[in-house]
């Protein structure tokens, strides 16, 4: 199967070229953000505060790494469950993000907002944190250092392997693929 190469931050043109089920190798700059960082970012957006980085076109990675052992850029770094971020995601999309990386199904509200904002939701393989960390070439904490593993880490990634789950046309790869292999109810 064809693999699409993309560079983050993303443009509307990048996003419109993606269809649910596409394999993608993503390079460039992405930012980690989990539950606690989302809560703070959304609070700052609501108050009109200056954000720690410009969200326009950015890709957020729902992940919190293990500490980097000596001599390594980062520890293990796979995706966490995305649905916990659903309550914050519409506001994050309103604020300009274009892409999200995580694992697991999104809510209807989020899927609708992805279409409205021409954004994209990717999955990385959950539990493959050792493999995924090898695609990270630099890592720097840029906000909320007090949150430890939940701080926002700015990452430079090279050929980070992803699959498109929700594209900007309303397709959902989880739903499509599950119905293909389901043998019906017991």
């Amino acid at each position: 199967m064809e693999v699409k190469k993309l560079s983050a931050p993303l443009t509307e043109r990048d996003v419109c070229g993606l269809i649910a089920g596409d394999r993608v190798l993503l390079s460039g700059t992405i930012y980690t953000a989990r539950d606690a960082a989302h809560a703070r970012l959304v609070e700052m957006i609501r108050h009109g505060d200056k954000l720690p980085f410009d969200l326009t076109g950015q890709v957020l990675y729902y992940a919190g790494p293990t500490p980097a052992p000596p001599g390594r850029v980062i520890g293990s770094l796979g995706p966490t469950t995305s649905s916990r971020m659903d309550v914050y995601t519409v506001e994050m999309l309103n604020a300009g993000i274009k892409g999200m990386i995580g694992k697991g199904e999104r809510s209807t509200d989020v899927i609708d907002a992805i279409v409205r904002h021409r954004a994209v939701y990717f999955a990385a393989t959950g539990g493959a944190g050792a493999l995924l960390a090898k695609r990270v070439v630099s890592c720097e904490v840029v906000a909320f250092e007090d949150l430890g593993c939940e701080a926002i880490h700015k990452l430079e990634v090279v050929d980070f392997p992803l699959i498109v789950i929700n594209d900007c046309f309303g397709n959902d790869f989880y739903r499509q693929s599950r119905s293909r292999y389901s043998l019906g109810s017991p």
Binding site: G104, A123, T125, I163, F173, S177, R178
Partner: peptide, 11 residues
């Protein structure tokens, strides 16, 4: 028989 499959990508 649910068809969820590895990583939920069907299988």
């Amino acid at each position: 028989a649910t068809g969820i499959g590895p990583a939920g990508l069907g299988g």
